[in-house]
Amino acid sequence: MDIRRLCDSYAVSPQINPEDVTAIKEAGFGTIICNRPDMEIPPSHHAEVVKAAAENVGLNFVKIPLTHQTMSVELAKEQRAIIDASDEPVFAYCASGTRCSIVWALGQAEDTSADDILNATSAAGYDLGGMRPTLDSLKKS
């Protein structure tokens, strides 16, 4: 498992195994968000399997499957609301962690500079520089 923190309250990762949820709990996370659609993975890793494992160790689990076609500011706001409402850090996963990083970036764009967002994602190994115009357009003045 490859946990990459974007900020104190949010980290991303490539696909996890159901057995990883104990380590996620021990790392201090309180919620897992699955951003990967089940159609991309074998049944052994479907969201319901990971959800059962997560709930078994006391973690919250939310499924917000994202594809390039379904990625939207509305889903970014939904994901941000989950992060903001959580008393403990949130852990999100997809195939590589990129979609989880993109949705976080979109959710932060209203009140965080594009520079700060892109520095955080870059430090975690995700080059989202091509998103700068979108992030700038979402920034409230």
Results as ranks from 00 to 15, higher is better:
11 A>Y: 06
37 P>D: 09
35 N>T: 02
111 D>A: 12
116 D>T: 13
72 S>C: 02
3 I>T: 13
105 A>K: 04
141 S>M: 06
41 I>V: 15
93 Y>R: 09
21 V>N: 02
84 D>T: 11
96 S>T: 15
113 S>Y: 08
96 S>D: 10
89 P>Y: 14
24 I>W: 01
13 S>Y: 08
34 C>D: 02
45 H>Y: 15
3 I>L: 14
127 D>G: 04
65 P>L: 08
104 W>F: 15
12 V>F: 11
92 A>V: 06
129 G>A: 00
63 K>V: 07
41 I>L: 13
56 N>W: 09
96 S>E: 08
103 V>E: 01
84 D>N: 11
74 E>S: 06
46 H>E: 13
125 G>D: 12
33 I>T: 02
86 S>G: 10
56 N>T: 08
75 L>I: 05
92 A>F: 02
46 H>P: 08
103 V>R: 02
99 R>Y: 02
71 M>I: 06
133 P>M: 09
37 P>F: 12
68 H>Q: 04
80 R>W: 07
95 A>I: 12
130 G>R: 07
109 A>P: 05
107 G>L: 05
6 L>Q: 07
49 V>C: 13
89 P>C: 15
125 G>L: 15
18 P>T: 09
40 E>N: 10
124 A>H: 03
100 C>W: 02
51 K>I: 05
5 R>K: 14
8 D>Q: 12
47 A>F: 00
69 Q>P: 03
71 M>N: 01
108 Q>P: 11
38 D>R: 00
98 T>Q: 09
58 G>H: 09
12 V>S: 01
59 L>C: 06
75 L>Y: 07
32 I>L: 03
132 R>M: 01
109 A>Y: 04
85 A>D: 11
102 I>Y: 01
78 E>P: 08
65 P>Q: 07
95 A>W: 14
69 Q>D: 12
